[in-house]
């Protein structure tokens, strides 16, 4: 009768777990990300592989330029209307099982760019995904 049981009953699409087991699972699976650098967040995505943050700890430092070789797509930055079809196409080319991470507020909800050019909630286009709604302020967030 923990919180996870309540959540599992009322919100069946949400998965709860311990952070440790999630990290261990990620480490075991060694997820390979596809480079999908779009805007500002892409620089921080690159930074994640550099010495300070060391993404290699989780076995996922191998950024693949081809979607065929990738497990997870990190959408880092705002998605414009011209880009959205490309995004969908690259997602479709990835082999199952696949995941999408939407990095930052702009990618998740449009962020400050509530206008004609940016797709506001492209996250609705995908089934399996994980969002981190924050602009790249600090590695601690």
């Amino acid at each position: 009768m923990g919180l996870e049981n309540v959540l599992a009953e009322s919100l069946p699409e949400i998965l709860t777990t311990q952070l440790d087991s999630l990290i261990n699972w990620a480490r075991k699976s060694s997820l390979w990300p596809a480079t999908f650098g779009l805007a500002c967040c892409a620089i921080e995505m690159m930074n994640a592989t550099s010495g300070r943050n060391d993404l290699a700890r989780f076995g996922s430092e191998v950024f693949r330029a081809s979607p065929r070789q990738a497990d997870v797509m990190i959408v880092s930055g705002r998605v414009s209307r011209k880009m959205a079809p490309v995004l969908r196409r690259i997602y479709d080319q990835m082999p199952e099982p696949k995941w999408v991470i939407s990095m930052g507020a702009c990618a998740t909800s449009g962020g400050v760019f509530d206008n004609y050019a940016i797709v506001q909630a492209w996250t609705k286009l995908f089934q399996s995904m994980c969002t981190f709604p924050a602009a790249p302020r600090d590695r601690k967030c």
Binding site: R81, K82, A84, D114, N115, Q120
Partner: peptide, 25 residues
Amino acid sequence: LLPDDWQGHALRKDFPLRGYEPYSL
């Protein structure tokens, strides 16, 4: 900057900020 099939000219004052219709694939 905008796709070839775009309707209207975005920076005209009478073009609405959020465009004419929400985006869908």
